[in-house]
Every structure is written in C-alpha cells, then in structure tokens.
Design a protein around this nucleic acid. Structure first.
Length: 875
RNA sequence: GGGAGCUUAGCUCAGCUGGUUCAGAGCACCUGCCUUACAAGCAGGGGGUCAAUGGUUCGAAUCCAUUAGUUCCCACCA
C-alpha cells in the first residue's frame, strides 16, 4: 500500500469519524460496568464554536476517551442551552433587519420566529464539535427547552414554590434597558469608565444659600426625594429640619441625616433617588421617602420625570446639564472615573430599577453545596477556586429568577382575573383546580386565568442539567438516571463557577440527593499573545474550523492542550497548533519508516536490537505509569508532554535509530514484531489526545487479535520497570552524545568509523556497547588500563573514555578543557565537604541524605584524581 | 473597601512531604548538517541571585513575616 509522505488530516478525520458513528462506539447504555459520565456544558443553541469551546471540549474528549479505554462504560452527553436573553436578542436583531419590530408581534408570533431560528441555526455548534473529534453520545442530545427539560424546570419551580423558597417581591434589580429585562447580579460586568462628576447647587429653603451635591448622574435629579448628609459632619449641622429645592423640577425635599454618607467624598452631600440607586432605595425605606421612578423600561424618561419626557437617559443627561447651566446651578464639573455596570449580554449600561420579580431563597439551599466542596466531596481543580467558592456561598443572596423575555420557560404562575392573586401549578388544568380552591369559585375557567408573562432565567434550567439530561427530575427512578448519576467530571470555565457550577451542586443535593459530579476541572481563558481575551469584537480570535482545516484536528487539540494547565490561561498563538501538526507528522513519518521495513525470518536479532527492546520496554512502562499518575491528578498538559517527549525522544530519536536496519536491508522478525507492539501501545497512549492519527495507524498495525478500532481498545497495562537498565541506558546515551560532540568539534563525518577506549573505574555494564557502536559508528569498544594519547577524552560517571584522533588533537585545548572541569569538580567537593564537616548536619540529617553526600564526595574525589592524571599525561 | 492567588530561562509553565527529580520542560534562540522516515527534520549548544528583605532550620525555590509588583473574585461611594 502506498503511504503518503505527509500526513493528510482532513480525509482521514472524515473517514474515521464517520466510522466511529456508524459503529456506535460513543453510544452508551447502562450495564454492569462502572460508568464514567461527563455532561457537556451546553453551548448556546445558536452559538458558533470559538476557541474557548475548543479547549474545553478537547479536554472533555480526552477524559472520556481515556475512560472508555480503561474499560469503563463512558458516556459524554451533548446538548445545547436555549440561552434566553442571548438568543432572544439575536432573534430581535434579525427581525429588525427584516423590518419587523418585536413590539408589533404577539408572544406567539415572536416565539414562532424564535423556534424557526433555533431549528435553522440550532446545533451548528454541535456539528462543529464533531470536526474536533468529540466522542459524544449523539443519541442522547438534549436541549434545555425540549419536552423533558422544560417539564423538569416547571416541576422544580412548582416544588420550590410549594416549599416556600420561591417568592415574588418588589426589589431593586439590575435592569437591562436594551433587552428590557432584569438580569442577575452575576450578569452585570463592572468596569472603570471615564465620566464626569457634576457639582450641582440645591437651594436651601428659607436661606439665600445653596447646598452643593456631587453626582455622576444629573438626569436622576428629576427623581430626587431628599438630600442626605452625615450627622457627624459639622459643616452641615445647621441644616436640621431644613429642606432644599430640587433643581429643574423645583420640588421641595427634606435634608436628612444618615451615617451612610461618606463625608470625604465630593461635598459630603448625597442626593437621594430611591428609584434609581440601590443604596438610595434602602435609605428611602429607612426614612419612609417616596419613590419617583422617572424611567420607562427602555431607559427613556417617563412622565414622572416632568422634563425631557421620552428622551433617552443619556440624552436626558446632556439636556439636564444644559438646563442646569442655563439656571446657573452647576458649580463645577470634574473628570471622574467610576465603575459602571454593563449587561453581559447586550453591553448596555445597567439601570438599577424597582420592579416586581420572582426570587429564590438561597441561604438554606446552598448549605449542603458549600459543605460538599469544603469536605472534598466535590473537588475543584485547581483547588485555589475553593476559596472563591466558599466566599461566594457564604455570602449568597437570593436569586432573581424572572426575566422579562419571551424566549424561555414561562413562569407557571397564574393570576386570577387579572388580580394580583395567583396560583402556581405545573399545568393549566391544575392551575384551574387550585384557583377554584383558592377563591371558592367553582365556576372558574381557564379563561379567567392569566399566566405570568415572564420567563425564567436561563440558569434556572441549566442548574438541573446533570439531572435533567437523564430525566432524573420527572422520573427519578428511571434506569439511566440511577446508573449514570452522579456524573464524574465537569469541565468548564471559571467565569461560570457561580452562575452554573455552584447552582448545579445546589440542585444536585436538593433534587437528586447527591452531588452532580465529583470533579470540576476549571479551564483557563483563551487569550492572545498580549493577554487580551479572545473575542469577536477585538477580531483576535481565529476561526477554529479554519485551524482544524490547516493543522488537522489532532494538531489543534495538541496545540490547545500543550500549555494550558488547569486554571491557567492559554496564550494562543498559531505556533501552538503548528507544534501539534509537526508532532502528527513526526508520528506519521516514524510509521512510514517502520512500515517500509522488509522482514527476513532467517536473520538473527542483532545484539543492539535485543538490548534496545529490553530498555524500551521498561521506558514504556515507566512512561505509562507517569501518564496514569498525571491523568489521575488532572495534569493533562503534563501527560500530553510525557507522551510527546516519549514519542519524539525515546522512541524516534533513540529506539528507532538503534533498531533501524541499514538502508534497504531487512529487519529480523523478533525486533519487528516487538516494535510494532511498542508502536501500537504508543498509539493507545496517543489516542485520547490525537484520536484520528492514532486510529489511522491502528488500522494499519492491528492484527486479528486486536479490537477493530482504537476507540474500544484497552489502555495499556503497566509491566515491569527495570530501573537498572534505564540507568545504564542513560550512561550509554551520554557516551553516544559525547561521541557526537567530538565528531562535530573535530569535523569528523558520521561515516568514518572511530575506536573508543575505556578505562573502567566504577560499575560498567557492557550490554549497551553494541548500541554505542551502532549510534556512534564505532569500529569497536576496547577496554584498556592505559590512558590513550593523543586522544579526545570524556568522562561518564567516573569511567574514562578516549577516542584516539592522532594529529587532530590540540593538546593545549584538551588541557584547558580538563582544567575547567577539574576546577568545577574541586569546587563541588569543597561544598560537599563543608556539609559533611558540619556536626549538626551529620547528627540531624536522615541517614540516606548523608549517604548521598558521602557518595558525592567519593565520586568527586575519584573524578579529581582522574582529571589530574589526564592533565599530567597530556603535558 | 473586603478576600484569594501569582512572581522560577526570552516566552508559557512544572517543581506535590524542606535534603537526588533541585535548579527542570516545551517553545524560542545560537552553531553545524538537505546523513535514504521526517528541514513540519537531525545533531550539538548557550541561557535563571527561583521578585526583594528578614526569620525558622544542620539545610529554603519550597515553611513564616514584611515589602514591591501583578492577576482574579466579592462589595458597588454618589
């Protein structure tokens, strides 16, 4: 069979993914085996794959593929999130493009458009995951708004309401005027922005004097109901019982006193606008002040404002400033930096706004979830997130779960005859029953009820995800749920630790009586080389699919993982997938080499191959053991690096070089068989990281006893690790490296054979001499008692090696080299002697440590003696 | 304002229980090679007061304290 010289990724990837799907290798059903479960963090249904997804899903795939190879019944459940606010925003924008305004549509009409959009664009991202090689069980795909998931959400809402944990109340919420909905605290991003601080004059009633108030939001003056100063502030002690005139609207409001006011800030006078500032609101309650809400839901001013009605809030700010200037009520304007909250979804400035919302009481619910992470039942990786988690959970606030949107799970509360009386029920029928009970009116019909117009926060469905994907809410006794829950590992970004992870743990204990997962692997954020977050708006994010096309899925996977430890940011650069692609090509070429060999059953296995096989077997086992350990501690980058170095250095640069037959000569059967076996085992180790190329090679190499696909092959077992042979081989590697250096320094071509003389001073195993002969291209290795002069010499441990080179040797150079080494060794000996001469050290240090030092001393002394002799000999 | 973390080679990071894994890896860099698997490669090489200071200890990159720089989380002072 013809094997191409370069690894062609695209065709191979398509071929094997199709094959895996046809063979249903990724599908799982409950059986006797131990389950291994990952649920995907569901991407937005209308989203497209970005670099963060790539990293995240590569990690999940690596974990699930290895678990599958370990013989576990592994399942990775895929799905998408309806992402109510993000999706609704997209649909609104799309309709607007087509000249349709949302507010001209009925709810039903809008939802029809939204579902159409979902059907058309939904799941693109899941298709893209397939290109990455994601081994999800596609038969189990779930959507947060499909029947089972919706039913689960409603059931849970009703249950929490009946438990008294959900309540409806007027609260100051974060209002997104663009999306016209409340958003949760977690969805508000604060950042420093440049603004102005306006010093505004408020006339004191009955005095010809002004009180100066500093504000960043002059437009809210229209909603002022008081001015507040600190009671300890001597500047204002004369103002007791006075009132001031609110500028522009000329409303008379009281001056009140509260220690909340910071005397240092601005003028020490704070204007109170309860409707538009959370702190003002609380002060308003405390002093029983009225609330004047001057904004409409879209951020324009309403009639309560009195002025600038219908203008946008920012326009109103400008107009207010103009007006104040005209009235000569502005003392000064300063540049000022303050923190401005913006909506995560729409980026519009959040408006604190009073509104009637639904809340979930969190304090009681979150207790077991806090406990679980504290006691290690749920393990956060890296563990530094434990602190962050604890801090949040201990200060958790009630969760505002209602959103003024249409796309989502509609709140199952039904108002009776448009009153504020309501019942909460899973279905309309039940609602009618309850309403009849509640009102005593047996004639109540469905038409007398009106369902709450709000939908639930997206996270109110995703917090159930690990349970609901197995239908564990609606049918807690079903075999899937009983078998797969709790899941094992969750892989996600630290940004959603509170949004999602914490709440899933809460829901797990409340609705499944157990944690939702054992380990949470928190990935880093993918950034560019300047450490900027990759984002569409910055245009610094490459398209993952282009990368896959260019570097191959395996190459990209390797690139993503090579330097991204858990919790550490990934500084992306094209050199990463390049390195991955180069690695794939390296593997491919090693394979081409092995595949090109002709086997001759009649030739004996050469000595160098025999020892190479012995060494490599131990090296392989040692490596597997390391990799297992790294997997167990979630050091995935390190485990990949272990495989990488093992393949590149140990296998390609050493093992294959040793056993490689001369050009166009055949190889003996024993070595060939062993080599194929090694190569197959390496493919197994590579398979979780690089599923495509490892499958391709597996198909070439497998024999009739092997599984038909590497996907279902077993992870290699560890056999003996012969420490001694590993050690001896390292000496051999040093000998070879020294020979190579001599060749390079003296310009001796590789094809010229050299003689190597050895004087043994310490343990010397000659089993690897054949290896030195082959790789160093030596004529022979000769043991001697006499130093060889003139020659180029080197030491490995305390054994002396000489390569006689006649007139190529420059005595002075050799002496200088030796003297340098002598000097270093003497210095080293001094430091060791100092330690050993220290009584306290000898008395306190453990025996083995002292022994090590004595060994160092002996070695150094021996080395010094040899070096001195060599220098003498040369003179 | 409250809290947590980080600082080791040019870059990204390991270094887990203080002592043989103790100063490491990959990439980048430098030198020499188109040597019949691979230039997407091979061989060789240089490079770090382990942020600073002090302490504990026979012994500190590692433990403690202080300082500096830096990142993140929480709270949201108009």
């Amino acid at each position: 069979m013809e094997i191409p010289a370069k690894y062609e990724s695209s065709a191979i990837e398509k071929k094997w993914y199709k094959y895996w799907i046809e063979k249903k290798y990724f599908h799982s059903e409950p059986d006797d085996r131990e389950p291994y479960v990952i649920v995907i963090p569901p991407p937005n249904v209308t989203g497209v794959l970005h670099m963060g997804h790539m990293l995240n899903n590569t990690i999940q795939d690596i974990l699930v593929r290895r678990a599958r190879m370990l013989g576990k019944n592994a399942v990775w459940v895929p799905g998408t999130d309806h992402a109510s606010i993000a999706t609704e925003a997209k649909v609104v924008a799309k309709l607007k493009n087509e000249g349709i305004e949302k507010n001209t549509l009925t709810r039903e009409e809008f939802l029809k458009y939204a579902w159409e959009w979902k059907e058309k664009h939904g799941g693109i991202i899941l298709q893209q995951l397939k290109e990455l090689g994601a081994s999800c069980d596609w038969d189990r795909e779930a959507f947060t708004m499909d029947e089972i998931r919706s039913g689960s959400v409603i059931k849970v809402f009703v249950d929490l309401y009946n438990k008294g944990l959900i309540y409806r109340g007027v609260r100051m919420v974060n209002w997104d005027p663009e999306a016209k909905t409340a958003v949760s605290d977690e969805e508000v991003i604060y950042s420093e922005e440049n603004s102005k601080l306006y010093y505004v004059k408020y006339k004191i009633v009955g005095e010809d004097n002004y009180l100066i108030v500093a504000t960043t939001r002059p437009e809210t003056i229209l909603g002022d109901v008081a001015v507040c100063v600190n009671p300890n502030d001597t500047r204002y002690s004369g103002l007791k019982g006075k009132s001031v005139i609110v500028p522009m609207v000329n409303r008379e409001v009281p001056v009140i006193f509260d220690e909340y006011v910071d005397m240092e800030f601005g003028t020490g006078c704070l204007k109170i606008t309860p409707a538009h500032d959370i702190n003002d609101y609380e002060i308003g309650i405390k002093y029983n002040l009225p609330v004047i809400d001057i904004f409409n839901d879209d951020g324009t001013l309403n009639h309560s404002a009195g002025l600038f009605v219908g203008e946008d809030r920012f326009k109103a700010r400008e107009l207010s400033v103009e007006e104040l200037k005209k009235l000569d009520l502005i003392l000064k304007i300063e540049d000022y930096q303050n923190k401005v909250g913006r909506s995560e979804r729409t980026n519009s400035v959040i408006e604190p706004k009073l509104s009637l919302q639904w809340f979930l009481k969190m304090e009681q619910l979150s207790k077991p979830a806090l406990e679980a992470v504290e006691n290690g039942n749920v393990n956060l990786i890296p563990s530094k997130f434990k602190n962050v988690y604890r801090h949040w959970m201990e200060n958790v606030r009630d969760w505002c779960i209602s959103r003024q949107l249409w796309w989502g799970h509609r709140i199952p509360a039904y108002y009776i005859n448009d009153t504020n009386e309501f019942v909460v029920a899973g279905t309309e029928k039940e609602a009618v029953e309850l309403a009849r009970e509640k009102t005593g009116n047996k004639n109540l019909e469905a038409k007398d009820l009106y369902q709450d117009g709000d939908v639930l926060d997206t996270w109110f469905s995703s917090w159930l995800w690990p349970i609901s994907v197995f239908n564990g809410i609606l049918e807690p006794e079903n075999p899937d749920f009983k078998y797969y829950y709790p899941t094992n590992d969750l892989v996600t970004a630290p940004e959603i630790l509170f949004f999602w992870v914490a709440r899933m743990i809460i829901a797990g204990y409340e609705y499944a009586g157990d944690k939702p997962f054992s380990n949470v692997y928190l990935t880093g954020i993918v950034r560019d080389k300047q450490r900027r977050k990759m984002s569409k708006s910055l245009g610094n994010s490459p398209d993952p699919l282009d990368l896959i096309k260019e570097y191959g899925a395996d190459g990209v996977r390797v690139g993503m993982l090579l330097c991204s430890p858990a919790g550490g940011d990934l500084l992306y650069d094209n050199s990463l997938p390049e390195q991955g692609r180069n690695f794939a090509n390296k593997i491919w070429n090693a394979f081409r080499l092995v595949k090109s060999w002709q086997v001759d059953e009649n030739i004996e296995q050469p000595e160098h191959s025999k020892v190479a096989v012995r060494w490599f077997e131990s090296k392989l086992n040692e490596t597997i053991s390391n990799i297992n350990q790294q997997f167990d501690t979630f050091r995935l980058s390190e485990s990949l690096m272990s495989v990488y170095k093992f393949f590149w250095d140990d296998f390609s640069a050493w093992y294959l070089e040793i056993i490689k037959p001369e050009y166009q000569k055949p190889i003996d059967k024993e070595t060939y068989v062993r080599t194929l076996d090694f190569f197959k085992k390496i493919c197994l180790l590579l398979s979780p990281f690089m599923p495509f190329i490892s499958e391709e090679l597996w198909q070439f190499m497998k024999d009739k006893n092997d599984p038909e696909s590497i996907v279902i092959a077993k992870w290699p077992e560890i056999n003996v690790v012969d420490k001694e042979i590993l050690d001896e081989f390292e000496n051999c590697q040093q000998v070879v490296a020294n020979i190579r250096t001599v060749r390079q320094e003296k310009n001796i071509p590789q094809r010229d054979k050299l003689k190597l003389y050895v004087i043994k001073h310490c343990s010397y195993s000659s089993v690897f001499d054949t290896v030195s002969i082959k790789l160093g291209n030596l004529e022979e290795v000769i043991f001697t008692e006499e130093k060889i002069n003139p020659s180029s010499g080197f030491l490995v441990k305390t054994n002396e090696y000489f390569i006689p080179l006649g007139n190529l040797i420059n005595k002075e150079e050799e002496i200088t080299k030796l003297k340098e080494e002598l000097k270093y060794t003497e210095g080293f000996l001094v430091s060791v002697m100092k330690k050993l001469g220290n009584e306290k050290f000898v008395n306190n240090a453990p025996v083995n440590v002292i022994e090590i030092e004595r060994k160092k001393q002996a070695d150094a002394e021996a080395k010094i003696k040899i070096l001195k002799e060599q220098i003498e000999g040369l003179k």
